[in-house]
């Protein structure tokens, strides 16, 4: 295996994804190709409806494409059944959602513990590890409070803690700053960058927010269901249509 092949974290090739009935078909992805490397933070950008979220879902194994192959850390996802995909996500993926998705009836620490408990870790171990990461995201002392008592930025910090507590190799972030103001969004992205930076971890961020492009190692631009180009420098992108 070449060095380049070894460094690939995510590879999607010729992916097709359609929704709706044959008479009324919506093309979400059309022969889409995408690659993300280990140790990098890559952003998926593009106008609304270009297929960013669909591609993210395919990479995350929550959607199975109608055509093409998807490989994540050497594991082909396109041939896996639902149970295998679920097990794959449990072990390999961390999620940061646009609307945080923190369970309001649970405390901050209980929310963070969820991925570990899903993995079947003992409650006390899950609690100890969660406390440690809550400390790292700067919310020490708030662990027993409810998420709705926190600001939007603090809630997203909890979501980041939850996404990283089980140390997944792939971190998926869906519009992580869209519900936050400029400064808070920048702090959150800095946190994602600081905490997730690891030679073995890949971070894929879907965003519309051009203010955070500077945190990316590479940016993949999407258009009409496929990657139109990949750039290293955000200044090379035309952001007027994003």
């Amino acid at each position: 295996m070449s060095h380049e092949a070894h460094s690939i974290a995510v590879r999607a090739s010729g992916v097709d994804m359609f929704f709706g009935t044959p008479d009324n078909q919506v093309v979400a992805l059309k022969q889409a190709d995408f690659e993300a490397r280990r140790g990098e933070l890559i952003m998926l950008v593009g106008p609304s409806g270009c297929g960013k979220t669909t591609l993210l879902s395919v990479i995350a194994g929550t959607l199975t494409p109608q055509a093409g192959t998807v490989e994540v850390f050497g594991q082909r996802l396109d041939g896996l059944g639902q149970e295998e995909l679920t097990a794959f996500r449990r072990k390999n993926l961390g999620f940061v959602f646009q609307s945080f998705n923190l369970i309001p009836t649970l405390s901050v620490i209980e929310n963070v513990m969820v991925p570990l408990l899903i993995q079947g870790r003992p409650y006390d171990e899950a609690r100890a590890r969660s406390l440690s990461i809550i400390d790292k995201v700067g919310l020490k002392g708030r662990e027993d409070g409810r998420p709705n008592a926190l600001s939007g930025g603090q809630q997203q910090r909890v979501a980041i803690a939850r996404a990283l507590v089980h140390e997944p190799p792939l971190l998926i972030c869906d519009e992580p700053t869209s519900a936050l103001d400029k400064d808070t969004g920048a702090h959150i992205m800095q946190l994602v960058r600081d905490l997730s930076r690891s030679p073995e971890r890949c971070v894929v961020v879907v965003t519309h927010d051009h203010r955070i492009f500077r945190f990316a190692d590479r940016i993949a631009e999407m258009e009409d269901g496929r990657i139109s180009r990949v750039v290293d420098d955000p200044k090379l992108l035309d952001t007027t249509h994003l």
Partner: peptide
């Protein structure tokens, strides 16, 4: 969300 995180 719990399903997405890998709960069967």
């Amino acid at each position: 969300a719990i399903k997405a995180m890998g709960a069967g």
